[in-house]
Design a protein around this nucleic acid. Structure first.
Lengths: 197, 197, 197, 197
DNA sequence: AATGAATGAGCCTTCATTCAT
DNA sequence: TATGAATGAAGGCTCATTCAT
């Protein structure tokens, strides 16, 4: 509540984020977080009762940071062309695909698996559906103002999102090169617009 | 040593597979496997030293079973048309995407994440690349004999495999309906052949 | 220091009494008292260093309240008959035996056990001996003025006090009905006086 | 189950009994039992999940031992006189009252308090009622064959049992001398028979 | 080979107690 | 005085792993 508490909470979240990035979700213990954040065993329990709560708060604070960023961008993008929007969207996706060790993505997958198996909901659904919708709107806009030729925006958006998701996972299990990502992005774009290599 | 041991080993693998399917990879303990297989604590250690070893053997024995099946099919498929091969391939993928609780897929993802983070290799790479190659060959064949119109088989194969992978993960985290899978499959096929709805 | 502190102290004692009544002695923690009294963790330590100190003060303040009551009664009872005194005494005992959840008695037993085992003294001794003496005096008075027929007041007083103590404990472990208490009280009185049912 | 297990179990019970005798019920921890029995932390959990389970088993095994003893006595007592039976009964009670540190009685009181507060049942009820009944039968027998003069065996039995219970508790909280116990026993017996001092 | 009791390390959680504000 | 965050010790529990039988 107090300022002090917020500072400490943020310290915990920062260090915990590193831990989750390094070890995923399941294998992280309260002890790991305690040691990473330099706080005392009992001290951590003042703020969080379980690794799940810490994780959810880490994710929440990341989402908030992201939204802030997105908010600041939305102004600039309002009167952007569909092509510009698409480029921004795909750049974000590419970043997401390629960011490695320091990213929470593996932990988030693990958490989402667990939630799915237990019938809970991890918020991943909302995230995925929102992103799909955004992409669809970009395509629609491009189609309407003649930037793209695209008779099935819904289908294309779905295909692109699935492929993107696939690349994310492949990146985290099999490995992927930036070149391959680029190739795939170009391939996708060719479905509805001219792209020079 | 041989007969008896093999029977026991198989018993362990069968029961362990159920456990991994139900709980994923990380959260499975030797105790879980002991209890599921009805074997003694010490007995399990005669065959396996860790859950990882059990898991790898479970996967191996599944792959072998699959390969056997594939082998028996390959004869029949040798002189099949590209379209027939493609249908078979996509059916397998669809099955894989939609199979739920009783499948090892979540455990395999978890394991692959772990291996990737530790710089090891989980075998997922080989699997993915092989499948991609198979698809590519089918497309090539179809292009060559005029069944498909497909100037970039490599690109299409990659796109399809990424999207397929994406659907697998989405199915296990966000959830997916069979209808959506079918839509996406039709979408993908339209890239190089006529498909009626 | 004085007024404010006393108010606070009393607040703590009141709430702590409820806690001890509900949970006994041993299982009460400083945390329980802190939460019940709404005071701060550190605040409690200004007044008391341990649950034992709180408990002793709770008991002391109860005894004081009781003594006050007893004092105000003693005037009226000075010229009461032995029979009247006896009735008053037994009524008090009966109340004590039957009062249940909201009473400190279990906590006091627990505390007395602990003190006995550690060779300390819990004050229970003084209480019991005083009560025995009071009863003895009442019997003596009744014998002297012919209200009772009682050649061994010491023996009778002891027997009655033991039985009373027994009923208290039985009430708190095995359970006892008011009817049984009444029966026993009548039984005891018949040892030295006429009682109609 | 096996012989070994029984030996170990008995070792645990023996050492645990000492612990409960020394510290009562509430303040005993699994760690205490572990240390007293020289077993490992995990080892204890093979046999018992909680101090309550250990305690109940300790009590059970004591009861069994007692019953065995009682059984072996019952033969001899069958054709004993009521006076002989009474002497035996009171001797047992006296022993129970006076046995100090090495006895589980305090722990049993603590446990019974806890059970009562939580609405469970500790077995104390059955024990008390059975003993009361036995005493009643002895008195009845004595009355019938002219050994005693006792028109209200039920009332006397109840009074005696309450007083006995009272002495037990007083012994464990306030302290009691053997002399006082003897005095009270004589007092009680005088209610229905001739006793020389 | 097989068993399962035993061990001990490791993590979880709760509290008494302290201390900066 | 009063607060409540912070600490660290203590105890609970589980599990990988060993070992006598």
């Amino acid at each position: 509540m107090s300022e002090r508490a917020d500072v400490k909470r943020q310290l915990i979240l920062d260090k915990a984020a590193e831990v989750f990035a390094a070890k995923g979700y399941r294998s992280v213990t309260m002890k790991d977080i305690v040691e990473a954040s330099g706080i005392s065993r009992g001290g951590l329990y003042i703020y969080y009762d379980s690794t799940e709560q810490v994780f959810l708060d880490v994710v929440k604070s990341m989402d908030e940071a992201e939204e802030e960023l997105a908010g600041s961008l939305s102004g600039r993008l309002k009167d952007a062309s569909a092509a510009e929007l698409l480029v921004w969207f795909l750049k974000e996706q590419k970043k997401e695909i390629l960011k490695g060790k320091n990213s929470l993505s593996v932990a988030m997958y693990e958490y989402a698996f667990e939630c799915k198996q237990e019938g809970r909901n991890s918020g991943a659904k909302h995230k995925f559906e929102t992103a799909t919708l955004v992409l669809e709107k970009i395509l629609l806009k491009g189609d309407e103002n003649g930037e793209f030729v695209c008779d099935d925006p819904k289908g294309i958006a779905a295909n692109m999102m699935y492929a993107m998701e696939g690349m994310k996972v492949i990146a985290r299990t099999v490995g992927i090169t930036e070149k391959k990502v680029d190739k795939e992005l170009v391939f996708m774009m060719r479905q509805f617009m001219e792209v020079e290599d």
